[in-house]
Design a protein around this nucleic acid. Sequence first.
RNA 1: GGUCUUGUAACUCAGAGGGAGAGUGCCACUUUUACAAGGUGGAAGUCGUAGGUUCGAGUCCUAUCAAGACUACCA
Length: 924
Amino acid sequence: MLSPKYDTKTLEPKWNKIFQAPFFFSSSNTSVKKKYSILMPPPNATGILHSGHALFITIQDILIRFNRLKGFNTIWTPGIDHAGIATQNIIEKNLHKNGITKESLGRSLFIKKTYDWVHAKTSFILPQMRNLGASANWDKIRFTLDHAYAATVSSAFVSLWNNHLIYRGERLVNWDSLSQTAISDEEVSHDPQQGTLFYISYKIHNSSEHITVATTRPETIPGDTAIAIHPSNTHLSHLLGKYAIHPLWENRLLPIIADNYVDPKFGSGVIKITPAHDLLDFEIAERHNLQKITIFTQTGMLNSNCLEYSNLDKNIARNIILQKLQSLKLIKKNHSILHNVRISSRNGSPIELLISKQFFLKTKDLAINALNTVLNNEIKIIPSRWKKVFEHFMTNIQDWCISRQLWWGHRIPIYYKLEDINPNNLENLSDSKILSIATASTENLEKKYPLEYRQETDVLDTWFSSALWPISTISYSLSLEEILQYYPTSVLETGSDILFFWVARMIMLGTYFTKKPPFSTIFLHNIIRDAYGKKISKSIGNAIDPFDIINGNSLKNIQLKLQTNSTIDESNKILTEYQNQFPNGIPACGVDGFRFGLSTLCDKGNSIKLNIHHIVKHKAFLNKIWNASRYILCNLNFQNISPLYIHEAHSRLSIEDLFILSKLQHCIKKVNKNISNFQFSKAALALQKFFWHEFCDWYLEISKLKLSNMTTKNILLKILIDTLKLLHPFCPFITEEIWETIPITVSYCSSSYIPQFNKKLLNPNAEKMFALIQNIISSIRYTCHSYNIQTIDKKNINIYLTQSLNYDLINSCKPIISHLTSFSNVNIYPNLNSLDVKTPFIKNSNIDYTIEIQIDKSNIPFEQTQLSRQIKKINNEISFLSNTLNETFLSKAPISIINKKKEKLNKLIYEKNIILSKKTFLTT
RNA sequence: GGUCUUGUAACUCAGAGGGAGAGUGCCACUUUUACAAGGUGGAAGUCGUAGGUUCGAGUCCUAUCAAGACUACCA
């Protein structure tokens, strides 16, 4: 028996425990069932579970449970990503607090420490994911840095190397001087910042002339090797071929060149060229054969090429250089300017471009193949607008810098043959020399031949291993044949923010290695924002902890959290909002309430606004289900309940039976269709509308009159069971709990079968007739409200049917009308002839019927006002409709529309006449 | 700068040629034994703005404004 109160806090832990059993949710390699597979995006090892995780778990679990209920052999592979830079940063920071550097610890000890830390971290986030009800294959959990995964990564690398798709070369790369590693183009973001544009005067060699250069980065002047103008710049073209004198060192001369890239309208129309630290300057230098002078060290200091400015931090050097230029009176003017600064998307530190030796993946051919899988619809991207974004990215893609100067990650499986080479001098070898001594190998050659080989010290970009997720997760302990059983996967579900980082690269490498795209559908969910549509950000402190909603939380605790995470202003603002909305703290919604509420927010919009109030409100639906279930289960005598052969007993079914069974079919259809189309809010809302506003509000209320009727009991139970199944993907816990309480159900709700749409139970006619009953009841209620008729006065009501409506059917609904309107005596007449004109009655008419409510004393002035209002409204409608029915309309509009409008006009005129006659009656 | 998305009730969103819909919030009534986390009823919208196509436009077209996303670049 269900407890009187729906209590998520006892119910959900109970089922979580049951769900942990090994047989739950495991898939079978030998199953004959069709498979349905999803790759779970592995959260970062550093992460704590946030609303973004909760969202993807909710969506993917809905898909998995739904398809499991449809009879598929589901596989959902969970895991953790080692998150190279992010993890290493944290560990190093922790070490620094204790005055330890990673170098003093040594590489292997550092890695061991990191492993331990990651292990501790993940033992926290993984159970949280499970507690959200995620019915994943927890027996197949992967970590992107464990041995088996590493084997896949190194064999992939070796294969790409041997096929010349990976090369090592000296290139201009994005350098993160905080983390001291190269990063890929995708990891750089542009941040608009206020800066200063300086106009600096350069003397022309062997001339009295000057040329003015505009720059925001005077600290890079030591690296300048030329001055450039636009070819069409007639004012300055006479200087082409001459030299400008370097402002810091008079003995250095800078050639003045012309290049189309210079914008003559920007600044002074003259730029300085710093080839070693700017991508476009680099390209100009290539075109004009200019020298490239590197001036920064890997830690962001000026190097020895900067002579007296060397060993200075670049920001300090900037000021010193500015002072020097000032003293030489070379700064003509300056003004502030808003410009984009390239920063690391990891840690926000400015990114320098630095020439260095790195490993690159040639992406051109891989990208073409990957793009083709999308263009020829082997992979479908939903929402489709991302297809164009994807195409743009793939056609403009540059080679991917995959090496990182870190310790935490997959060490690149390249081994250098030492022979006559000094192992400490590898960095300075030319590209061709390196190529001649480098071998890619899945076997650790350094370990095997320590005197002959030395392994590359760099590790791979985390996203390189993530790109192999589809292959690695599947190939873990399987043979190639088995891999192909699970590959390609059915759906990839993730946020659009990692379309390039992850999704694109999985397609490139997956397609390359298996000749098949790794998934057939990509569903990109919207990004979660706060209730006001603001981006969730750590600095604002508007992050919402899903468990605050799931378990509830007091305002005091929330205040504490806010104070540690955000500024005073922000936390006060957010707290005031909480106080207004939840004076008693956030109520506990449970995992089910959270998931269901979140589902109703997953619609087509641009973002998901995580409004706690909205979730709390939708949780009320689960309470409704709980209570309706209690009503049904308390009133059924299960000894007499037989299997439900309802469709075979049509003739014995009443109008409300036919109505609700027909509505159930609509609901089944909608839930199926909308989940299949990733329209989760539509599916959830369709369920809510059906169960609450069609089943509970109408059928269940009516059933109170008919609890001795076996068919009614059967239908109550059938609707409950079918709804539980449909609801299960959204709310796994409450559905299992209720399921368990129903004596005739077997096993678990999660292992049942989703109800099938049954066309035979669709009954538009019954829906139409029942809608009329609903309409009669509503208008009686409305009339009672507007005339303020108390329950105690609700005695006699007469209903006159005005058309050839099914009198017998409506007459048979007398008890229903009585029950739902509280009138003790309901009379139904087949025609208007018997309208009573003598006793005081309140009347309400439309084309189908007139209702008469008997009252003790009528309030004639009030009634007349009511009637006048009605007439005014109806007159407006009539005149509008008459205007529409003009000559051009009649000659051009389709007949069906014309008839519809004419019919409506007639109806309005008819209703108006009834109201008028009533008014006449009242005045006489 | 380019590409894309979105503007409908106070809020969150449905509707995709034939007189504007839901939920929340608001107002009124309501403790009737499944449920007050409930029930009943109501008020509330120039469908961003301006043109156009059409007998007829939230719906199609053009322009424009606003918000947002992605992407490029800013010396």
